[in-house]
Simulated scan of single mutants.
Amino acid sequence: MRKPIGTKARTGESCPESGVWKALSTPSTTAPIAKDNRMPPYDGKAVTWELIRYA
């Protein structure tokens, strides 16, 4: 079963769902991340990522 849109994950955690993720930071960015990959840092910092679209 898919994780819902809006699911959050932190840098370093295992990605819970393949899709497009948005960094909840300023500035922000989006990135396609595959399930089970490690959530990346953004702008040199640990951030919280939010799932905005399924892959």
Rank of each mutant, 00 (worst) to 15 (best):
V20I: 15
E17C: 13
P27D: 08
G19I: 10
S14Q: 10
A23D: 05
I33Y: 06
T30C: 12
E17R: 11
S28F: 04
T26W: 11
R38K: 15
K35I: 12
P16L: 05
I5T: 12
Y42I: 07
A34C: 01
R38L: 15
G19M: 11
K22L: 10
A31Y: 03
A55C: 06
V20W: 11
M1N: 12
R38V: 11
A34D: 09
P4K: 13
T26Y: 08
W49K: 00
G6D: 03
K45A: 14
T11A: 06
M1C: 12
G6S: 08
T48D: 09
R53C: 10
P41E: 14
A31K: 15
P4G: 13
E13L: 03
W49E: 00
A23G: 05
D36Q: 09
M1Y: 11
P41Y: 05
G19Q: 10
P16E: 02
P16T: 08
K22F: 10
M1E: 12
T7S: 10
Y54C: 08
E50T: 03
T7E: 04
A46R: 14
E17N: 09
A55F: 03
D36F: 02
R53P: 00
S25Q: 03
L51N: 01
L51Q: 01
G12V: 07
S14L: 08
G12P: 01
N37Y: 14
P32L: 13
A34W: 07
T7C: 05
K45N: 13
T7N: 02
V47R: 11
S14F: 05
T48N: 10
P4S: 14
E17Y: 06
I33F: 03
A46C: 13
I5W: 08
E50G: 00
K45W: 06
K8N: 09
R53I: 04
D43R: 02
G12R: 03
A34V: 12
E13A: 14
A34T: 11
L51T: 02
Y54K: 07
C15V: 13
K22I: 06
K3A: 15
A31E: 11
K35D: 05
N37E: 15
I5S: 08
W21Y: 10
N37R: 13
T11N: 00
Y42Q: 06
P27I: 02
A55T: 07
W21M: 12
T7H: 02
P27T: 04
A46I: 07
